[in-house]
């Protein structure tokens, strides 16, 4: 299997494996992804099916049995939802929301940032002033407007998160693209009179991309936390289909009364997920960054 000539992929793998911590992170991340994908198969209960919940089983402590004799290993929440199943399904939603919103926000931010940096002048001014407006518009107000106009749902939350985050990327991309633009290869492409779109997307973009991808992995965590905060403010997902964040904010009110498990276990799951993503992302950044090569 091992190739004699060291290809870039093999080299990449070898470098990644240098850090045992990163490898551990990768394993955890893969396990979490597997749980998320397989949630409907491995969960003891479908926590989104109201017919399977019984409010009589609400707020049971971990390990307690229901009236029907079934054990809830991580306890239940205030609707009698099995926390273990809730966490499995919640992982699925949280990861989905985090990844989808980051990808879209990144794509939009990338296009606007690049266009602003490349064309400069009034285009740049216009885009950057829109970015200013966007950045000063509170996430809660955007989420509220979208809720009023579009209603509730996973797709709406993704739209809200994208709306909140794209401007951040646009500004970051623009500043790194401004540096890139001064370099010879862009000048060369211009001198060759290549089409503008071609210069932007075939030349500028690939050179801005690697660091951004790593930033984006970190931002997935931020998106998940932001979704949790919106849920806390009552603007998040439908309460019958909780994400990790929604589970935490539902259980939040039970913290002072000692029913810790309702928000503690989802909190641990969220922490593990984000830690794994970050361990992997840190290592990726170190490998991909050409300026760190010894």
């Amino acid at each position: 299997m091992a190739p004699k000539v060291e290809g870039p992929w093999a080299r990449f793998r070898a470098e990644f494996a240098e850090s045992r911590l990163a490898m551990a992170g990768l394993l955890v991340l893969l396990a979490i992804l597997a749980i998320g994908i397989l949630a409907p198969v491995i969960s003891p209960q479908n926590p989104y099916d109201l017919a399977q919940l019984d409010v009589m089983d609400s707020k049971l402590a971990p390990g307690e049995k229901s009236a029907a004799g079934r054990t809830y290993w991580l306890g239940t929440d205030d609707q009698g939802r099995d926390m273990l199943s809730g966490i499995f399904y919640g992982l699925r939603i949280s990861l989905g929301v985090g990844i989808a919103s980051t990808v879209f926000a990144l794509a939009i931010g990338l296009v606007f940032g690049l266009v602003a940096a490349y064309f400069g002048g009034w285009v740049d001014t216009l885009i950057m002033r829109i970015v200013d407006i966007q950045l000063s518009f509170p996430a809660i107000l955007i989420a509220l407007i979208l809720l009023a106009v579009l209603g509730q749902g996973v797709d709406k939350i993704v739209i809200a998160l994208v709306t909140v985050q794209w401007a951040y990327y646009a500004r970051t991309v623009r500043s790194s693209a401004l540096v890139e633009r001064q370099k010879e290869y862009v000048e060369a492409a211009r001198v060759l009179a290549l089409g503008q779109a071609r210069v932007v997307f075939r030349h500028l973009l690939p050179n801005c991309l690697p660091p951004l991808i790593v930033v984006a992995t970190v931002q997935v965590a931020h998106a998940i936390a932001l979704e949790a905060t919106l849920s806390f403010l009552g603007l998040g997902l439908p309460i019958t289909e909780p994400s990790l964040g929604l589970l935490i904010s539902n259980g939040f009110q039970y913290l002072l009364s000692g029913k810790y498990w309702i928000s503690f276990y989802p909190g641990v799951a969220l922490l593990l997920t984000i830690m794994a993503i970050n361990l992997v992302a840190d290592q990726l950044r170190d490998i991909l960054n050409p300026r760190l090569r010894k």
Binding site: L50, Q79, L144, L147, G234, P238, I239
Partner: peptide
């Protein structure tokens, strides 16, 4: 929470019930 509990009861008599809650201002 009341809305969710009510929905549980309806799902037991054969009514497919969804729950949508929102802040009072909306």
């Amino acid at each position: 929470k009341i809305a969710q509990a009510i929905a549980q009861f309806y799902s037991r008599i054969g009514i497919d019930t969804k729950v949508e809650t929102m802040p009072a201002n909306v």
